[in-house]
Nucleic acid binder design. Sequence first.
RNA 1: GCGGAAUUGGUGAAGUGGUUAACACGCCGGAUUGUGGCUCCGGUAUGCGUGGGUUCGAUCCCCACAUUUCGCC
Length: 376
Amino acid sequence: MKLDFKIKKEEKNTKARWGEFNFNGKVYETPMFMPVGTQATVKTLSPEEIKEMGAGIILSNTYHLWLRPGEDIVSRAGGLHQFMNYDGPILTDSGGFQVFSLAKPSDISEEGVVFKNHLNGDKLLLTPEKSIEIQNKLDSDIAMSFDECPPASASYTYLKESIERTLRWAKRGKMAHKNKNQMLFGIVQGGYYEDLRKFSATETVKLDFDGYSIGGVANDHESKEDMYKAFLYSTKYLPKEKLRYAMGIGEPIDIIEGVIRGVDLFDCVSPTRLARHGHAFTKYGKINLKNAKYKEDFTPISKDCDCYTCKSFTKAYIKHLINADESFGARLLSIHNIRFLISLTEEIREAIQSDSLKEYRECFLKNYYGDHYGKK
RNA sequence: GCGGAAUUGGUGAAGUGGUUAACACGCCGGAUUGUGGCUCCGGUAUGCGUGGGUUCGAUCCCCACAUUUCGCC
């Protein structure tokens, strides 16, 4: 079903927007952080827990579900919602990011991308049509256009060629899109060059998608400044009334800076991946529960946090679980980290309503980076 | 009591008469941004049971002692 996105308020001092959309009789607000559940599960968490944390849209991945269990099985199960028992909105990534992470430039052709199946080594061809066809069958609520996600530092010439090819792929994907209940988002690329972002955005908008994504960011150790330019150079040329989604963005400060530049949606693996490696977000910076100093720290990760983990367990206990490689540790940290990013977006929405987003950012920076404030 | 073997960091251990004592685990840090979940990158023995000796030089050779262990009585 299509989400009818509405902007409720624009912040006075920035390009931030507070918005909402309906899904299944429920209202969801933006800016929103979307947890990632690549293989039809947000690792270690149940759908009930995800919802309790205040999550709205969650992600899943075309490439992974294509290989296993296969889109036909998901389809016969009644679609992704029924398969994984999640009744909130689901967005599927197109496999475009796997072009970046798994394929070599020589694997990319006009037709599509040749992948080596990481499970059994088979050679597979993923095309824009195939990606959309898979996503149609998965029956997610938002499908992504199949794009190439080149590293931000790629040469201007390469980025231009890549954008043009991605535009042709976008057109082919749109033609192939048959699921009327599913929205389809286009993707803007172009590194941190304004003219390329402008070209990519305006040409993608001409194809008239249901929403637009900003891709090719935070994938190449580019500076934060360049990344924020990429946000701005993209949203600047996108229609106001449509959702804008910064793909893969999930460091707290990057979410704030993205919102300031007019982005509505963010997703990132960081809360769950960091959790598996023993890290927790806090207002005063990221902490590593593996550090010896937490061995006898019988206080919660954050006393102000309203998550299940912080209400029930101490750092010393979670540290022990992580050290002992117990999966419950990763679970508790995933709950905390996802809740942290969701409550960050809640605070951002309040700051938009009171036109105080810049003040909120300053306050956040000071707490999060402390003495390093300004250097990041 | 007699005879043999062993003794290298927190652990299991490799090693050689001559610059920085291998490797693994553990431990201590760090990384991680549209996830190929248990990964990657650093650091971690001023020291080779103790005391003597041989030698230009010894963890490595010799002697004594200690400890552990095996066998015999």
